[in-house]
Amino acid sequence: MDLVTRDEKNQKRAILFSALERNEYQQPLIKAAYAVFLNQSHLAIDLLKPLADAAIPEAMCMLGAVYQAGAGINTDAELALNYLLQALEAGNGVAAHNLFNLYHKGIEGIPANEETCLYYLGQARQMGMYHS
């Protein structure tokens, strides 16, 4: 049995929660979240990419989170940042929370940055993400 760190569990949980918003894209989002849960990120990316390309905020957020977490794939800072910023611009509060985490901890290619971290924390809270 693989050991999963607390941060990995929290990142997977964030991906799952972002799929739970009710809309016409709910089924592929849930399938993608489940794929991440099973460490099948390549399948999740295949499910999310067409929806993200169609500017579905939840898909952009989830895709950014997948690239941020690197669950089963290598992290990709540029793609993570790109998708999360697009989701945030589309009004997705989970994206603001994920950007807060990205700059709080940093990932390869994006160092931690307290000022930017606090900016996205404020954005997340303004968007109703009070657990941030």
Rank of each mutant, 00 (worst) to 15 (best):
P57C: 03
I110K: 00
L85R: 14
A95T: 03
M1C: 03
K12L: 03
A14W: 09
A124K: 03
A95R: 02
P50L: 08
D53V: 01
Y119W: 10
I73V: 14
A44W: 04
M62P: 02
P50E: 08
Y119D: 13
N98Q: 11
A33V: 11
A96S: 15
E108Y: 09
L79T: 06
M127D: 09
Y83M: 12
Y120P: 04
G122S: 15
G109F: 14
G93E: 05
G72V: 10
D7G: 11
T75M: 13
K105V: 09
E115V: 14
Q11C: 04
A52Y: 05
L16G: 12
A54F: 07
N101S: 13
K9V: 11
Y67V: 04
Y67I: 10
L47Q: 05
K12D: 08
Q27H: 02
A19C: 06
T116C: 05
A55M: 09
K31M: 12
L84H: 08
A14T: 13
M127Q: 11
E108V: 00
C61A: 11
S41N: 05
P50H: 09
A124H: 04
E24T: 06
Y119C: 01
Y119V: 07
H104T: 10
G128H: 00
S18P: 04
L38P: 00
I110E: 00
F37W: 15
N23A: 02
